[in-house]
Deep mutational scan, measured.
Amino acid sequence: DNLVIALHSYEPSHDGDLGFEKGEQLRILEQSGEWWKAQSLTTGQEGFIPFNFVAKA
Rank of each mutant, 00 (worst) to 15 (best):
D1L: 11
D1T: 09
N2K: 09
N2L: 14
N2M: 14
L3A: 03
L3C: 07
L3Y: 11
V4F: 15
V4S: 03
I5M: 07
I5L: 07
A6P: 00
A6S: 04
A6E: 01
A6Y: 03
L7P: 04
L7F: 06
L7M: 08
L7S: 04
H8Y: 15
S9G: 09
S9L: 05
Y10R: 08
Y10Q: 03
E11N: 12
E11I: 15
E11T: 15
P12F: 05
P12N: 04
P12W: 06
P12K: 08
S13T: 14
S13W: 11
S13I: 15
S13V: 15
S13E: 14
H14I: 08
H14G: 12
H14L: 08
D15R: 10
D15K: 12
D15E: 13
G16T: 09
G16P: 02
G16R: 09
G16M: 08
D17L: 13
D17N: 09
D17I: 08
L18I: 08
L18N: 01
L18W: 05
L18S: 02
L18V: 03
G19A: 11
G19W: 06
G19L: 05
E21L: 12
E21H: 13
K22Q: 10
K22L: 07
E24G: 02
E24P: 00
E24R: 00
E24I: 02
L26M: 08
L26D: 00
L26C: 05
R27H: 06
I28V: 10
I28K: 00
I28D: 01
I28G: 01
L29D: 02
E30W: 12
E30C: 14
E30F: 11
Q31F: 13
Q31A: 14
Q31W: 13
Q31K: 13
S32P: 03
G33P: 03
G33L: 03
E34L: 14
W35F: 11
W35L: 08
W35K: 12
W35D: 01
K37H: 08
A38C: 06
A38W: 04
Q39N: 02
Q39Y: 11
S40C: 06
S40L: 05
S40I: 05
L41N: 03
L41W: 03
L41D: 02
L41R: 02
L41I: 11
T42P: 03
G44D: 05
G44N: 07
G44C: 11
Q45D: 09
E46S: 13
E46M: 14
G47Y: 05
G47I: 03
F48S: 05
F48A: 05
I49Q: 01
P50V: 05
F51E: 07
F51M: 13
N52P: 04
F53D: 02
F53Q: 04
F53Y: 14
V54P: 01
V54E: 03
A55V: 14
A55S: 10
A55L: 09
A55E: 12
A55M: 13
K56N: 10
K56A: 13
K56Q: 11
A57K: 10
A57S: 11
A57E: 11
A57T: 12
